[in-house]
Design a protein around this nucleic acid. Sequence first.
DNA 1: GAAATAGTGTCTTTTAGACAATATCAC
DNA 2: GTGATATTGTCTAAAAGACACTATTTC
Lengths: 237, 237
Amino acid sequence: MYNPSDFNESRPNVGVTIIPIIYQDGELKVLAYGRPNDAEEFPNTLAFPNCFFDRQLHDSAEEAATNALSVKVNAKVTHFEQLETFSGLYIDPNRITTINIAYFALLKQDEIELDDDSKGKWLSVNTLLGIDDDEFAFNHKEVLVSASERICAKADYSPIALNLLPNKFTINDFLEINQVLMGQGINEKTFRTKLKKSGLLIETGEKSAQAKRQRPAMLYTINPDFKGYFYPRAIFS
Amino acid sequence: MYNPSDFNESRPNVGVTIIPIIYQDGELKVLAYGRPNDAEEFPNTLAFPNCFFDRQLHDSAEEAATNALSVKVNAKVTHFEQLETFSGLYIDPNRITTINIAYFALLKQDEIELDDDSKGKWLSVNTLLGIDDDEFAFNHKEVLVSASERICAKADYSPIALNLLPNKFTINDFLEINQVLMGQGINEKTFRTKLKKSGLLIETGEKSAQAKRQRPAMLYTINPDFKGYFYPRAIFS
DNA sequence: GAAATAGTGTCTTTTAGACAATATCAC
DNA sequence: GTGATATTGTCTAAAAGACACTATTTC
């Protein structure tokens, strides 16, 4: 007969971490929190939304992650994806071996309510990547690295960047975010040609409003029926 | 002060599952075990190498997974990668909510010792994918699906298939395994041209030995210094 | 019309793909 | 030489990329 308490000394702590990402001012930004000076663990460090997994409260890790995120951000998540699961005593060294199931969430900047009452701030991912591990709580620096790498890698061979753009966007918007994520120039003509042929996007018929005196750009949306492939990485400048 | 036992009723079970894969007779095969009739849980089902994560025994999930695999397979793992982490009561319904950290391992068929004393068998992945979930222990069917999808997806945009080939292989070997994994024909000329230009492979100077009277093929190895991209998916028949 | 960016046409170079030709081995 | 598969050459069609040109807006 199975008795759960027989294994009380064997089970590790389990937690989830979620990296919420938007695209703003030409770069990725992540929602980070400064932990208070009097925090029991990791005072005065940066942390991302996270929570302890409690089998009495949560049916699944995704549920725990979704909850932990929704109490922090009041906006629709356009892409939610599991990253890696980290494990080891190093994650929470003063406690016990911890399993950290990491996720990232992409949101649209124009749907975020910026002036919320929480202490969270949308900080530049590139800036944070330059900061030492020990300025972050738990293993949150490595989770950020994982998220950044995954997003940039996926930008190479999928249109994942669209999850960060408004529902209506221009070809140039899409081209530019791909260039940022790929760290590579892209030939505009080839990009437009391939994009048009791929069937990934649909013309809305609307045009972008511009303050300056210039030709407005056509606005597009994602084709919900798109089933093909789109490889930005195959297009170079 | 942190007292681990305060959370005894909160922690889920944690386990690891490893999907060991080889390429044999033109298809992927996975090492599966038939669970005995008198097993306490999931008698008479198929299972893949797995173990319970014990914080007193294991420093990390990778360590647990590597151990669980090494007691089953006596061969070098050429690629080891985390898949997803699954969670829920459904994984082990008679016990408690379980976190299952899944991995896959690629091995070279020619390095496997086939006639080991264990009851494990290398079974066709495609055959197993056609079998109902409840013929498998725990959530092992969904783990197999995850592994299969990941490997096939990666074959589209990376040379992951090389981990399944012998150290020395022909261009045709590589082409054929890619076709199998991608489920797509590939143009041989284009494949050879792109491959040569990519710098992914190095000529060994040796030639394949053939029983039949025919021209032997050049044997290649992986260029350890390769740092580029190789997208089989961009080549169609 | 001027300024500014959006988007396209055109030409050149490169690549893909079909198919034929050649290469290399055992017998 | 024959049979069989490996590998390359060649030619045509398609795609990529550079760059100039046209389009559309506001002022």
